[in-house]
């Protein structure tokens, strides 16, 4: 199995290439405004460093967000297009799930919070519990201002850049778990694949487009 993992749901543009029995090759660039520019060259370089070509890939895993829309779509469309062109399956994984597993590896706590930057003074967040194999989501991913998340939830060890942006709201930051680790994403996808779990490649937008229909405008 040779899996390519891609995540563009946060400031980080992350790529990993993981072959069975070998250490994953990981490349991450931090640049919230240039996902389109960085991603394809990162994929090309990671494959080369792993001594592979695109044709060797057997699976592609991609973070489905939630995350700022334009960057998120760059990762998703790259994954589904490569998957189609190469004839390999593409697996979607909620990006917050990956951060939760990174968080649980970085702390002894039994529960963690993930809070990423949703812009507009809001965060994408979800609460997780330690489970036998990884992290189990206790809440579905949501988007709202940090201050309206329940206080007991905000007190948990918190991963993601949302915690850095709103330090008053999140007292227990995990400073080493800010962005999705694409190698961890690959590992989550492999485990779910082995367990036969469905992994739909559906973007988690959580917000509708900012526009009113003509009917809605008339009703105002």
């Amino acid at each position: 199995m040779l899996i390519l993992a891609i995540d563009t749901a946060t400031t980080a543009i992350g790529v990993a290439v993981h072959r069975d029995g070998a250490d994953p090759v990981t490349s991450v660039v931090l640049d919230a405004r240039a996902h389109t520019e960085h991603l394809a060259p990162l994929v090309a370089r990671a494959l080369e460093q792993a001594g592979s070509t695109p044709r060797d890939l057997t699976d592609i895993a991609v973070g489905t967000g939630p995350g700022p829309f334009t960057g998120l779509r760059v990762g998703l469309v790259t994954a589904v297009t490569m998957g189609y062109a190469l004839g390999v399956p593409v697996h979607g994984v909620c990006s917050l799930d990956v951060l939760a597993e990174q968080a649980l590896a970085a702390t002894d706590a039994d529960e963690v919070l993930v809070a990423t930057d949703a812009r507009r003074r809001e965060v994408y967040w979800a609460r997780y519990a330690r489970a036998e194999d990884g992290a189990r989501a206790l809440t579905p991913p949501a988007v709202e201002p940090a201050a309206t998340i329940p206080e007991d939830t905000r007190a948990l060890p918190t991963a993601g850049r949302g915690a850095l942006l709103y330090p008053d709201a999140f007292p227990a930051v995990l400073p080493d778990v800010l962005d999705v680790d694409p190698a961890r994403l690959a590992a989550v996808a492999r485990r779910r694949l082995a367990a036969g779990a469905p992994m739909p490649v559906e973007p988690l937008y959580l917000r509708r487009p900012d526009a009113l229909t003509t009917a809605e405008r008339a009703a105002r």
Binding site: H35, T36, L39, A40, V43, A44, T53, P54, F69, T70, R73, V74, V77, T78, A79, T81, M82, A85, L86
Partner: peptide, 19 residues
């Protein structure tokens, strides 16, 4: 901008996958 990015990323993915 956002619309162009979908096409550009997809085209890069195709070029890369097909060599």
């Amino acid at each position: 901008a956002g619309a162009l990015m979908v096409g550009v990323a997809s085209a890069k993915a195709l070029a890369l996958a097909l060599g």
